[in-house]
Amino acid sequence: MDEPTPTVIVDRLEVVYRVYGAGGDRGTASTALFRIIGRKTRPTIREVRAIKGMSFVANRGDAIGIIGRNGSGKSTLLRAIAGLLPPEHGTVYTTCPASLLGVNAALLDDLTGERNVVLGCLAMGMTKKEINAKYQDIVDFSGVREFIHYPMKTYSSGMGSRLRFAIAAAKDYEILLIDEALATGDAEFRVKSHARIDELRNKAGTVFLVAHDLEEVEETCNRVIWLDAGKIVEQGEDVIGIIDKYIEASGGDKVARDPVTRKRISAPEPAAT
């Protein structure tokens, strides 16, 4: 793959949230009635500009880490790429619908893990035959073992997110968006999920990863986009350089790195997340 092929093009994207009922009247029945009689629109709609003009191109085989403070627009960006949020201005172009894996993406809590695997795969458009072939892999990958026969509501948050990731990753996506979904996994699961993300990238997929765990971004991503207040501060392939700058800007301690490999030496957890 010498010539890069774009899979996601974000073109001057702006996203605005309209928040209802943020302050304003007292929210009682009488104030609502007077509002309707007076033909007033809700005075309490407030606009929050979550993304203020952002452009970039993602190519096949990219794993892009998105870093930034809380509220800097990371999750909003992913949801806009997934087509779940309408852009106010600008456009997001994709080769195919992107799949968003969020931290709260429970499937059907009342049902057993087993049924969730089957239903999730069916929803992704797999045939019964494909599911039979992949079922054991998914269960093994999730590592929930005998809990697969229990309803998903009995799972710990870590187990739940592992199973969800395992289901979603069973299909070879062109574009996979991961929003903190790996945060609750244990060490063993992280190794597995990194391997799976690499595999997806090698099959010419594009992965976006939102994570506060900067080490995870360092290990997984070949590009990084640093957001602040809805704008790109810096982006590029120098993942470690940008992360170090980000840590510095957040007031964290400088990360001790090996001068040659640039790997972390003692890997202290960054102060700012």
Partner: peptide, 28 residues
């Protein structure tokens, strides 16, 4: 576009849109 408040003049020439058309990308 690194970071600008809204689209910058000169960037709005649709070059990204043209790129999207070239590779067959569609609005999400």
């Amino acid at each position: 576009v690194p970071s600008s408040d809204g689209p910058e003049p000169g960037q709005g020439d649709g070059s990204l849109a043209a790129l999207a058309t070239k590779y067959g990308l569609t609005p999400s």
